[in-house]
């Protein structure tokens, strides 16, 4: 993947929490429709990298470029709008609003972007169907199993038809079988949509779905690239 055709790229990303450096100069490029797995030991900075790329965290130095624009220069509000239009975010857990029903949760990015309630709910219901949890539309997250919650969260991350999906161990809290199923659904849908994915994972079986794997160690890319063994 040449830097030029990259949809999203990070150059020299560094970020610390107080005195603790989490990332120390990471370069990464994601092409359109490409699924990139990020692996590495716990605490190596995977989540931090994802948050920087998604514009949730600002980098200390280095740039994050999306469609040739340096989003580091954008305001907090502009980056928020990016998250409800072009980006989708999927975490291990905790991204659903516990007080809203499944369909309201999925409709949320559309509503925030200014859609009317009726259309937003309709689109949201279709997405819930697509991920196989249509019958749970009126349930709240607290009344769903972990796998159902992640399907809902996936529907919410994809409802705006984002160009990039950021997934941080999306199946990390699920048992192996459910994890497999949910991940299968996610991959099927993003392939259909041509969505690019930054996928963080600990598990080789998950990384195997990716086109490419990069390995982080102590906040830098591992040059040997010996990770969980994708594409080899």
């Amino acid at each position: 993947m040449s830097e030029r055709s990259a949809l999203l790229s990070g150059i020299g990303i560094a970020r610390s929490y107080g005195a603790t450096p989490a990332l120390r100069g990471v370069d990464l490029a994601v092409g359109a429709g490409e699924i990139v797995a990020v692996t590495g030991p716990s605490g190596c900075g995977k989540s931090t990298l994802l948050h920087c790329l998604a514009g949730i965290l600002r980098t200390d130095s280095g740039t994050v470029t999306y469609r040739d624009q340096d989003i580091g220069l954008w305001s907090e509000a502009a980056r928020s709008r990016l998250r409800r239009t072009e980006f989708g975010v999927l975490f291990q857990f905790g991204q659903l609003v516990p007080e809203l029903t499944a369909v309201e949760n999925v409709a949320l990015p559309l509503l925030l972007a200014g859609s009317g309630r009726r259309e937003a709910r309709q689109v949201a219901a279709e997405w819930l169907d697509r991920l196989g949890v249509g019958e749970l539309a009126e349930q709240r997250p607290g009344a769903m199993s972990g796998g159902q919650q992640q399907r809902c969260a996936t529907a919410r991350a994809l409802v705006t038809q984002p160009r990039v999906l950021f997934a941080d161990e999306p199946t990390g809290a699920l048992d192996a079988l459910t994890g497999e199923q949910v991940l299968g659904e996610i991959v099927r849908v993003v392939r259909e949509q041509g969505t690019s994915v930054v996928l963080i994972t600990h598990e080789a079986s998950v990384a195997a779905y990716a086109d490419r794997e990069i390995v982080l160690r102590d906040g830098v890319l591992d040059p040997t690239g010996l990770g969980l063994g994708v594409g080899r």
Binding site: R84, Q95, L112
Partner: peptide, 19 residues
């Protein structure tokens, strides 16, 4: 605390700080 969690989740879905 519950409201903080809710607001953070809404922010993650793309609400701006002002919203």
């Amino acid at each position: 605390p519950a409201r903080d969690r809710r607001l953070a989740a809404i922010r993650l879905a793309g609400a701006t700080p002002r919203e």
